[in-house]
């Protein structure tokens, strides 16, 4: 989802575990939180760095498609709200980078890995936001899908990650509601506005379903991550929950889900729906989505253009500290 296709290790059986690993697994099973300085398997540490890092990158890159509309929001109020939302995303990125840093990697190292392409961010942010209705669809569907994944992660076994998720979830429901609010306004507006809302839903539906990642029922990576409680539900479970929750919301708007196979299944008490196009998903992940180059380019440019400023603030801080030290010596 915000972290897709995170590589873990094959799950170990109790016999294959070392005594330390078994004691660690027992702690996780008891629901204890693991804190940064405590012993943890190397695989747990590495998988978490990949997962939290990818999640953090998604928050930061996710600012770009929405930032695109800050200057063109239809009213001053909408503009202030969108600014607040995009600012929240920066904060979410920061919480997550800090959580990742407790595992022994620095934020700058994580950013280097984003910039050189060795770490990914969610596929969803490689789609363009063409109209104002897209901002509604992003809040409603993309943040809605993110919440699906993030709510269970509040119970994850790694303390700093869990605490970051709790903070993020508190703020995230504002994001989804503001998106739905935009969709309501457009869906109840002129026929042209309603058509824009439908068009946004048509374009974002399938990419939103892809956010959960391909089916991982049989994945050994997932089995290990679930044993470690750094993944709580399977991708399919989350996707099903998302569809079941979203369909009535679309009905309320009077918009139709762009899937001819969407049908209520009384037996499973959920909707049947079409799988998204996984070939497209892997193309986007590989860097060939509609906006991959633009998004990564914007991040790299911001980082490089800001280097002189970051350095200047460090130089100022160092000079200031030296001045204070000299003043202390003079006073003694």
């Amino acid at each position: 989802m915000y972290a897709q296709l995170v590589k873990s290790e094959g799950k170990k059986s109790a016999e294959e575990m070392s005594p330390e690993e078994r004691a660690f697994q027992d702690r996780v099973d008891r629901g204890e939180k693991i804190e940064p300085k405590e012993w943890m398997p190397e695989g747990y540490r590495k998988t978490l760095i990949r997962q939290i890092g990818q999640h953090a990158h998604s928050e930061i890159v996710g600012q770009l498609p929405e930032g695109n509309w800050i200057t063109r929001a239809p009213t001053l109020e909408r503009k202030a709200i969108l600014l607040a939302k995009v600012q929240d995303e920066a904060g979410h990125g920061l919480y997550l980078y800090c959580a990742a840093e407790t595992l022994g990697i620095s934020r700058d190292q994580l950013l280097d890995k984003l910039h050189d392409g060795s770490m990914k961010y969610s596929s969803i942010f490689n789609y363009p936001t063409l109209t104002w209705a897209d901002i509604g669809a992003v809040g409603w569907l993309v943040d809605g899908a993110a919440i699906m994944n993030q709510v269970p992660l509040q119970k994850t076994s790694f303390g700093p990650y869990s605490r970051a998720m709790i903070r993020i979830c508190k703020e995230e429901s504002f994001h989804q509601r503001q998106g739905y609010d935009i969709m309501m306004k457009m869906a109840q507006g002129t026929p042209e506005q309603k058509a824009m809302a439908q068009d946004a839903l048509n374009r974002f539906w399938s990419p939103a379903l892809m956010m959960f990642g391909p089916s991982d029922k049989e994945s050994v990576h997932s089995a290990q991550s679930m044993a470690w409680k750094i993944k709580i539900d399977t991708n399919d479970e989350l996707r099903q929950k998302f569809v079941d929750q979203t369909v009535p919301q679309a009905e309320y708007l009077g918009l139709s889900i762009p899937d001819p196979n969407l049908k209520w299944n009384e037996e499973k008490k959920g909707y049947d729906f079409s799988e998204p196009d996984w070939t497209e998903f892997f193309e986007v992940i590989a860097g060939n989505g509609p906006c991959n180059r633009e998004r990564l380019g914007a991040r790299v440019k911001a980082w490089e253009d800001g280097a002189w400023f970051r350095d200047a603030l460090v130089a100022h801080a160092e000079k200031d500290a030296a001045r204070r030290a000299a003043a202390r010596v003079a006073a003694e």
């Binding site: 920061l94 919480y95 800090c98 840093e101 934020r107 605490r163 970051a164 903070r167 970051r310 603030l313 460090v314 100022h316 801080a317 200031d320 500290a321």
Partner: peptide, 11 residues
């Protein structure tokens, strides 16, 4: 409540 990066205490 958490942590952050900054060049000095004021920032």
């Amino acid at each position: 409540v958490g942590s952050l990066h900054a060049p000095d205490a004021e920032m």
